[in-house]
């Protein structure tokens, strides 16, 4: 068995592709640096992330793959699913080796799997766009906590900066403990030093803007009134709006 160790960055992964072609040996497994190896390892190789190598691989991919598919690579990377890096590695190798484009060959397991994982992440991106709920703080910053399964928050920034261009906002991933702050001009990544700004998805009442509670009340009242009792279908509701999102939904609190 051939093992490659790398630093679990996307650039590292592309460097691994470069090194593999260079050495003409392809890994059966990709592991983190220092990660415990399985038994019976024939070759163990340590990849040193190198910007030049990774950008050369990327340039080659730009010739081989359409922009949509290149996007898909980063979506699969963001999925943070176990084995997604190995999947990308296999896909990239197939793409580089094939004379024709492999993008539409859904009869191939890896091509299909790439599409399915990318779709999952894309689905979650849309869920975030739908279900983010801002609470207005006293300093006029709109605050929204989220906890997505995949690391899909960065994918939503383009949408949110366009839509809420004239208000300051923070969207914070409580699971990965980082977020983004928009100051009316640019978006910057940030980390909160303490968790006492909010409890159970709600902004601390002391930090809330004056009329925030009223608007939350209005929204809850509106949401309740919209239900048509003759048509109750809780299963359908949950199918569209899975329960794991409920803790941060104003109307469900």
């Amino acid at each position: 068995m051939i093992i490659f160790h790398y630093d679990k960055t996307f650039e590292g992964l592309l460097t691994a592709v470069f090194d593999a072609y260079n050495r003409k040996t392809f890994p059966d497994k990709l592991l983190r640096v220092e990660e415990l190896e399985p038994l019976f390892v024939d070759v163990s190789y340590r990849v040193i992330t190198d910007e030049e190598k990774s950008s050369r691989v990327w340039k080659r991919l730009e010739k081989k793959l359409s922009p949509i598919t290149r996007n898909m690579l980063s979506y699969v990377w963001m999925s943070e699913l176990a084995g997604s890096d190995e999947l990308i590695f296999r896909y990239v190798r197939k793409a580089l080796d094939s004379k024709q484009s492999i993008e539409m060959n859904f009869a191939d397991n890896d091509v299909l799997e790439m599409r399915n994982v990318a779709q999952k992440v894309n689905k979650e991106k849309h869920r975030l766009i739908e279900l983010v709920r801002f609470q207005k703080a006293a300093d006029d910053i709109f605050f929204a906590p989220v906890s997505p399964d995949h690391n899909s928050l960065p994918l939503t920034l383009e949408h949110f900066t366009d839509r809420f261009a004239d208000q300051k906002w923070i969207i914070y991933d409580t699971k990965r403990n980082y977020g983004y702050y928009y100051d009316l001009k640019t978006v910057t990544e940030m980390t909160l030093d303490s968790n006492n700004h909010f409890t159970e998805g709600k902004l601390n009442e002391k930090l809330m803007a004056e009329d925030e509670k009223l608007f939350q009340e209005l929204w809850r009242g509106y949401f309740k009134s919209m239900t048509i009792k003759e048509r109750i279908n809780l299963k359908l509701q949950q199918q569209h709006m899975p329960k794991r999102y409920w803790k941060y939904l104003t109307e469900k609190q």
Binding site: D166, T227, H240
Partner: peptide, 29 residues
């Protein structure tokens, strides 16, 4: 698209924001 000094944007594909207990989506007020 949003233009400077204005509020909001409209996405071409439509966005649902919530779902009531009857399973219908709430997109618009």
């Amino acid at each position: 698209k949003n233009t400077p000094g204005s509020i909001g944007s409209t996405a071409g594909w439509g966005i649902c924001h919530s779902f009531t207990e009857d399973g219908r989506c709430v997109s618009l007020l």
